[in-house]
Design a protein around this nucleic acid. Structure first.
Lengths: 253, 253
DNA sequence: ATGAGTTCTTGATTTGGATCAGCGCACGGG
DNA sequence: CCCGTGCGCTGATCCAAATCAAGAACTCAT
């Protein structure tokens, strides 16, 4: 299977690469970030990185590939909370709960940079600005989750699927993983999309098909294109939350 | 209307009172927290504290009363993300976005302690452990939101209502706002509950009624009691997330 | 190449929750 | 005190999405 977005600078700190999108890092911060991470680790697609109710020992930054976090309910159904791409931080619930509330699964083959809670505590202690930035990023991801909640709680099946596609495109574009005018290879099954939107795979199929018939999306040899992204965004009530404000952060050390 | 939970220590730092539930604060931290907050502010029930798409100037800690944050979608429907009680922090999205993604509304009369982003930056800079603790609390609230997402995405109307009631009880009990064996006065309309669970008010009514008929809940003169909380928790797939782990935090300053 | 297991697709039928409509009560303000 | 409004409650009907069923297309391991 083709893997997208594998061109991280090998050996550099993954987290530093991500944070640099938001602030200019000082030399001391860069050095501290370098000390944070352990050697990269590779997982096959389908691998479970963190398992619900078990006790994870570390967190990760995604260097390449797609993952998702999900929970399985008593009735056997699964809810996918979010898909994760390059630069995303995975396993943060470890900062609040010893037992993982979620399962993290590799959707494609992935490369992850692990780091420990203890090292993170040191980093925040010595570089409080990084702590503040992580706080802002976590707040942003909570807002994105709230958007998802509103989408699932209060919009039609068609809008839910549309909003998910818009979100994926907005985030991948921000990462530079979509060549201009190009499509994206979605490594997701329709069942995955259903579990993310609170629908059945059958109904996801019908909605995608309807969107395609209306010329809003197009699927050709494994690539997905948004032919009318403007329209899809407004029909689906999608809001782009990829950028965050950092002007308020304390000074770098 | 009766207001619940008004017995905060007047004059003390609201945030300090909250954080003290998780860690022992040093004298320096206490002093810094005292400098953070501005004088309390009171709002009438129904008041809008922060309005979607406007630019809020500050964040708040709840000293007393109930609030909720919500978003209104293009189709006119409303999604309530979470209810807020004493000690909850409100308006955090200001740390990531200049325009508020959500509306915050007072459900009862409320007293709030405002604080600014700039003062918070100073606090985190001088006391990185507080920053780390805020990060852990934000992670925890994101996990709670994910639980809600799974509830709305993958469970029945009855279970959604049940899970919401369980969550309210668990959180209020943690705050000591429920006398042993006592009920709670819910200041919410059935429409509020519907907007929180992704249902219509009509259907919420039927579900509450069904729960009452099955002897799982009881409503008597404005008080709500859970007669079979164990059963409700398991039927509704509810997980208590009120406690958080703090052992990993950096040392106090 | 072959066969087995996924995944996608489509049609038929069912159903959980929405929508529509209307009644009664509590309560707060003039 | 009385009226108006908001809220709880209930019945009838409708509809969006689930469920059930089955064939086609694709992947992947051998």
């Amino acid at each position: 299977m083709r893997i997208q977005g594998e061109e991280g600078v090998l050996g550099g700190s993954c987290l530093a690469e991500r944070l640099r999108h938001y602030v200019r890092l000082s030399d001391a911060e860069m050095a501290a970030l370098d000390r944070l991470e352990e050697p990269d680790r590779t997982y096959r697609r389908g691998a479970v990185i963190i398992r619900e109710n078990e006790k994870p020992r570390e967190m990760f930054v995604v260097r390449s590939g797609w993952l998702h976090n999900s929970a399985v309910l008593g009735n056997g159904s699964r809810q996918i909370m979010r898909f994760h791409f390059r630069g995303d931080i995975i396993g943060l619930p470890l900062l609040a709960f010893p037992d993982s509330p979620e399962t993290v699964t590799a959707v494609t083959d992935v490369v992850l940079c692990p780091f420990s809670r203890e090292k993170l505590a040191q980093l925040i202690d010595q570089h409080p600005r990084i702590g503040a930035l992580l706080l802002a990023l976590t707040v942003a991801s909570r807002v994105a989750l709230a958007d998802r909640l509103a989408s699932i709680g209060r919009t039609s099946a068609r809008a839910r699927v549309g909003a998910l596609l818009c979100e994926i495109f907005a985030r991948m574009r921000r990462l530079g993983l979509i060549a201009e005018g190009e499509g994206v290879h979605l490594p997701l099954t329709q069942e995955d999309i259903g579990d993310a939107t609170g629908l059945t795979a059958v109904h996801v199929n019908r909605m995608m098909r309807a969107l395609a018939e209306d010329g809003i999306i197009e699927r050709r040899n494994g690539q997905l294109h948004l032919r009318n992204e403007k329209g899809l965004i407004s029909d689906s009530n999608f809001t782009d939350r990829t950028g965050i404000e950092t002007g308020w952060l304390p000074p770098a050390r």
